[in-house]
Amino acid sequence: MSVDVKYRTSATTTGGRDGTARTDDGSFEVKLSTPKELGGAGGDGANPEQLFASGYSACFLGALKVAAAQAKVKIPAETIVNAKIGIGPRSEGGFGITADLTVTLPGIDKAEAQKLVEAAHQICPYSNATRGNVDVGLTVA
């Protein structure tokens, strides 16, 4: 598989899960903290799973807009994508993640919404990156 890269970005993390992450262009910086559920102190910092949930939900909404445009369907401005990301030990060893996306498309017939969500799942770069590696659930609310 080849990708015709149109945009590239980078970020640097220091201190691991209890450090900081910053994009190299300085447009984004975040304090990190490990959740208590993973043996950390918790705290007011974000964690990689929250960042992944934010990125996946934003990217999936963008893919949903592309899928809607291709189907000649106007999606409402109030459309919401919620991503719930889980993390825990894998039976094979190491850790793994899960993703559950819930999409709310007000005013769109549920069957039509389901088709758009499935199409977006084929378009979204996060979905393509995780396919076959992460259990991803798709729900139309």
Results as ranks from 00 to 15, higher is better:
Met1Cys: 08
Ser2Trp: 11
Val3Leu: 14
Val5Asn: 06
Tyr7Thr: 15
Arg8Asp: 13
Arg8Gly: 06
Thr13Gly: 08
Thr14Asn: 11
Gly15Lys: 01
Gly16Trp: 09
Gly16His: 08
Arg17Ser: 07
Asp18Glu: 13
Gly19Tyr: 01
Ala21Ile: 15
Arg22Cys: 13
Arg22Met: 12
Asp24Cys: 02
Asp25Leu: 04
Phe28Gly: 11
Phe28His: 12
Lys31Asp: 14
Lys31Glu: 15
Lys31Gly: 14
Lys31Cys: 10
Leu32Cys: 03
Thr34Val: 04
Pro35Cys: 07
Lys36Tyr: 09
Glu37His: 01
Leu38Gln: 08
Gly42Tyr: 06
Gly43Ser: 03
Asp44Trp: 13
Ala46Phe: 08
Pro48Leu: 01
Pro48Asp: 09
Glu49Thr: 03
Glu49His: 02
Leu51Asn: 00
Ala53Tyr: 04
Gly55Val: 06
Phe60Val: 07
Phe60Cys: 08
Phe60Pro: 02
Leu61Tyr: 09
Leu61Ser: 10
Leu61Glu: 13
Leu64Gln: 01
Leu64Cys: 05
Lys65Pro: 01
Val66Pro: 00
Lys72Glu: 15
Lys72Thr: 12
Val73Ala: 04
Val73His: 05
Lys74Ala: 15
Ala77Phe: 08
Thr79His: 08
Gly88Cys: 09
Ser91Asn: 14
Glu92Phe: 03
Gly93Gln: 03
Gly93Pro: 04
Gly93Thr: 03
Gly93Ile: 05
Gly93Asp: 06
Phe95Thr: 04
Phe95Met: 09
Phe95Leu: 09
Thr98Cys: 05
Asp100Gly: 08
Leu101Val: 05
Leu101Gln: 03
Pro106Gln: 07
Ile108Asn: 00
Ile108His: 00
Glu112Gly: 00
Gln114Ala: 15
Gln114Lys: 15
Lys115Ile: 13
Lys115Tyr: 12
Leu116Lys: 06
Leu116Met: 08
Val117Tyr: 02
Glu118Cys: 09
His121Arg: 01
Gln122Cys: 05
Gln122Asn: 11
Ile123Asn: 05
Ile123Ala: 05
Tyr126Phe: 11
Asn128Arg: 13
Thr130Lys: 06
Arg131Leu: 14
Gly132Asn: 10
Asp135Lys: 12
Gly137Gln: 05
Thr139Asn: 12
Val140Tyr: 02
Val140Ile: 08
Val140Asp: 00
Ala141Trp: 09
